[in-house]
Design a protein around this nucleic acid. Structure first.
Lengths: 341, 341
DNA sequence: CTGTTAGCGCGTTCAG
DNA sequence: CTGAACGCGCTAACAG
């Protein structure tokens, strides 16, 4: 029908015809069936954002960035939550392929690249957010986890801490290993030997943060500072510390990767490495939209956004006896405790 | 093709043919085009959840309830965020109608029913969540706002408070007016005259909570307790109180409708009326799915779920001088201050 | 500038 | 039990 032209182009139609069609549309309350259009045009104007934890404000903020960029160009966004499970991730990808989404923004549950292979097989473009994936040739947007961790741990060391424990996420997730790498660089910088390292891998949630902290506290000599690799781990840590009767930062300093939204924490006092979450989402969506528009180079692009240390009241110099003693004498068993989990 | 039969029914096909087809599917990595199926079958197996603030954990929890119930029956969910704007709401509904969703779960931005009319015109079933809408004949799931507010304010009164200020959301939203009604009932029960009422209407966000609190604090005599109609309002209130150097609950008690998730608030101390958010979402989805399956009665159904007062450390008896004085003598100007906003 | 023809990938219907 | 024809509502590609 000519109707189609009126609705889409509006070029190549006479004003009067257009007028007539528009009036009819208004009278009938006509709305084009997007499904049929999509079936015909092979494009759904829909992208998907697959992420690992929709309850985490970091990811909600990313989601907002994605949505704003996408909607500005007339794209809809489907949000999918994998709960850090690769199986769920694949499950969702299959659904998305069937539903013919134009592209997928993916926060991968692991550093495996099978998900990306699946997408590639079906000719779907992808952008990987927040985390790295092994040997993938896709667009990527993330923050510099290693550098951010370096900043946080360096800050703790400058305050006088010598025994810092890292509470990390899964060893299969690049943000964990990158942040641990940053931690190690900070120790090296300060000539703190690897025998003083204490790394615990776990999961990116509250329960795991709680449990890792309990484990960290039994080590002797006790660490004087915690570096938590994400916000939920930090929340679990705080709870464990409180139960143990420890006061932050007097008895234990704590620095965190990821901020929590201002208002949600009634007493925002955490020293954090803040990431530009909204920008991560927005720029990832931009990369995807460019590619869908055909304006993107064939080669994959990588955007690494800066992060920023914000010092607040959860970090302070360690108690006097703690600073000095271990710097002089490190007991033998320390070197074997919990490192590399 | 016979392929269709294999994928859908699997009845009326010989085992060997089925086998052959399945093998071919596996080899080719074939996935049916859901779009074409939907075009043909006039059903998308998709429902939409339109809500007013995706940043609010109350609504995220509802979303989880909806998603779980929907996915269990093979339905996908599209999430849409209106930011409390009726214009955005209508905009989204148009998109959803075009995309042929099977039904819409709606947290209406206002108590107007134009959105529901639009849906009805296009033959789309709807379920209204959390809030009431004027003169609508649709399924509804909500909690008993009036009763919950009654519980909270009664608790404050039992502690000895006589000057309680309500910080409400928009006057066009039923949860606001219902909670204010509950507040009034509590005052009446205690024979506190309407001249002691103080009601401020605003918006369901932090900034508004902050601003309303500033206004409430200038009233003389000052209120001794705040009843905040949602969690974000309470957060804004806390910030305003802190800036004014007031200590909770010593200088001011505060009770809140809506809980905040455990972990997110490092020091969970708020006395709250907790709603079964997950259940609201789940049951709303169930109503919709029943209706889509044709198992629902023609008449609209309303489910009102119970809510529960959880007393914590943000409420305490008022300071002595405050309790007694106003109960005896209420200054004239008090009656005119801020009530009915 | 407008009308016509064909087909997107399925499911339904009716013959074989 | 299986295959062939038809159409869902739209747009691409041609005629006119």
């Amino acid at each position: 029908m000519t109707v189609s032209r009126v609705i889409n182009d509006s070029r190549h139609t006479s004003p009067e015809t257009r007028e007539r069609v528009n009036r009819a549309i208004a009278e009938l309350g006509y709305m084009p069936n997007v499904l049929a259009r999509q079936l015909r045009s092979k494009t759904t104007k829909t992208i998907a954002l697959v992420l690992t934890d929709i309850a985490n404000p970091f990811f909600t903020t990313i989601a907002r960035g994605v949505e704003d960029a996408a909607r500005a160009r007339g794209y809809a966004v489907m949000f999918c939550n994998t709960d850090e499970s690769e199986a769920e991730e694949l499950e969702y990808l299959r659904v998305l392929i069937q539903r013919q989404v134009d592209g997928v923004l993916l926060v991968p549950a692991t550093d495996s690249s099978v998900s990306l292979k699946l997408l590639a097989e079906h000719g779907l473009p992808a952008v990987v957010l927040d985390r790295r994936v092994r040997s993938a040739e896709v667009d990527e947007v993330r923050t510099d986890s290693e550098f951010g961790a370096l900043l946080a741990v360096r800050h703790l060391i400058e305050l006088g801490h010598r025994r810092v424990v890292v509470l990390a996420g899964p060893e299969t997730v690049s943000t964990s290993t990158d942040r641990v790498a940053g931690y190690r660089r900070a120790l090296e910088e300060a000539d703190i030997g690897p025998e003083s390292e204490q790394v615990i891998f776990g999961e990116y949630n509250e329960a795991s943060g709680y449990e890792m902290t309990r484990r960290a506290l039994v080590a002797r000599p006790q660490p004087t500072a915690i570096f938590a690799c994400n916000n939920f781990i930090a929340i679990g840590a705080i709870q464990a510390l409180r139960e143990s009767g420890m006061v932050v930062p007097a008895d234990m300093s704590i620095a965190v990767f990821d901020d929590l939204p201002q208002g949600w924490v009634l007493d925002p006092f955490m020293t954090v490495v803040a990431q530009p979450a909204y920008e991560i989402g927005r720029q990832a969506a931009e990369l995807m939209l460019e590619r869908l528009a055909g304006h993107a180079p064939a080669d994959p692009r990588t955007i690494v956004l800066p992060c920023q240390l914000i010092t607040r009241r959860s970090t302070a110099p360690p108690r006097r006896e703690a600073t000095i003693e271990p710097a002089i004498k490190v007991p033998a068993q320390w070197a074997q405790t919990e490192s590399h989990a």
